[in-house]
Design a protein around this nucleic acid. Sequence first.
RNA 1: GGCCCCAUAGUUCAACGGAUAGAAUGAGCGUUUCCUAAACGCUAGAUCCAAGUUCGAUUCUUGGUGGGGCUACCA
Length: 596
Amino acid sequence: MNIQESIIAGIQLAFQNIFNADLSLDQLALAPTRKEFEGTYTFVVFPFLKISQTTPENTANQLGAYLKDNVAEVAGFNVVKGFLNLELNNQIWLGVFQQLFDNENFGQLPANGQKVMVEYSSPNTNKPLHLGHLRNNFLGYSVAEILKANGYEVIKSNLVNDRGIHICKSMVAYQHFGNSETPESSGLKGDHLAGKYYVLFDQEYKKQIAMLIASGQSEDEAKKTAPIILEAQEMLRQWEANDEEVVSLWKRMNEWVYAGFESTYERMGVDFDKFYYESDTYLLGKDIVEEGLSKGVFFKKENGSVWVDLTAEGLDEKLVLRGDGTSVYITQDMGTADLKYEDFKIDKSVYVVGNEQDYHFDVLYKIMRKLGRPYGDGLYHLSYGMVDLPSGKMKSREGTVVDADELMQEMVDTAESHTKELGKIEGFNPEQAAELYEMLGLGALKYFLLKVDPKKRMLFNPKESIEFQGNTGPFIQYSHARIASILRKASMIGVDYHAVDFSKVTKLEDSEAALIFILNDFEKKIELAGQEYSPSVLAQYLFDLSKEYNRFYADLPIFLENDEVILAFRVALSDLTAKTIKKGMSLLGINVPDRM
RNA sequence: GGCCCCAUAGUUCAACGGAUAGAAUGAGCGUUUCCUAAACGCUAGAUCCAAGUUCGAUUCUUGGUGGGGCUACCA
């Protein structure tokens, strides 16, 4: 039983003994005491005034007195209006600290026997990754790591959108303008090369539309009849008919793109256990349509198209199969959902996809539940908002897209110039320095994108993201480096903090108690972040921890202190803080340096 | 038109229905004989509007206003 639980149990008993009322444990909750008040935990008595039949102050005072006398953890209390603030004694803190210090698996909850798939990234293979993908990839990776820390077995998957009209556009443009160009001959990364032809297609398409309009066609007509778009559509048909030449070009260009993505993913620090390709899955799901019809979940219209009626669930009727028997998007998503289950027997499935598809996934999940899938209740759409630029929305056609590779490089370059400016790299060899810049640049970028509540639309200001001050990744990384410095110094002068006898520590400063309180909370924060699939909770926590530690550190007379036990205790506290930061940051996919 | 999401200091973000709404940044003023000043301290500044539920509402409900998204036999 932890401290909170035993206090709550004590409150339950207090209500029985004082007010003769039986309350269940889940009616009682503690909150952390706000820092401007004395105490560690606060119990709010307002909801229980009907039971106590007296004033808030009286109620709180009676409860507090009972807890102080009967619960070992409670050393004292104070009452402010209806708020009962409970103060814990130092020995309890030290016990908590000892537990944290002894726990080898700090930050890892026990296995819960559940399997979850996290699908993220899911790029199109016709152009390079951009800023929006970065938010997706960092979120997906981080959520997967947080779920692991929560005790899940996690499978990271990537559903690659490698077929369709958009790929054919790049291919058609390559046939027209490519001149056998390759990544090697052009010096471009494969994904950027494909992207170049996608842009060329669009330019040519626009040119043709303009000409057709000039010759008297309407805009809609022109868009449908421009020769190059017809060509792309024809190519898609050929691809589906397995035309040898088209398929071979498709394979070649996709290989380039995959090689490009691979290096981008590597630099991002994300990885996958399983790749799915739409070229393999786009025909799946038709059997489910049959199943749905026979189960009465779907119905057929006169023209043969198949629909699901979700009006009872507050949605519309949605098409699941066209009248000509061909698939729509949701058909293959139904099939892929089953495929994932067949492959891994997962209990839960998290889809990291932008919020413009909220409706689509709402429909998909409702269908799979209606069909009675065992994983139905475990389907979760981790929906995230768009990333805006100060100049407005990103639009690929207008060239306002921020390229992922370029952005990462820019962040690393800035880390380098900033670090050199501060003269912080004395004693680093070139490899170590490069590694540090990489850590700092990417840490800044990841933290910037992860600290915001995923569902909110966010603003990405390139200048601010490169800032290393304030609520940023580098601030937390810096805190870690400072602590590591203390630990080095401590071992140099021979402080053996592993052998501290905590029972000999008698006095706890406020800042130390605050740190222990925060550290004690770590596993709960992981759990919370896991339930909400929200790295932002964890990011905020790590920032708070770093800030608290920097305060502690700012006037830490550690090497002037004579009392050996206190000294060792403080070093041990630093060590634990460093471990927490390192663990927490690794759940966000961010590395922390020992020196910087 | 219908449905969904969002709205908090100048700005970017926080706040299980709880206390005087927190941080960061920007502005101003300070702090370095010593462990990393990429730090620390102090000062100024905000809940879109209106009702309702509640002992208590930034949070829940309803109605407005503003911003974004979805609303294809596209993916």
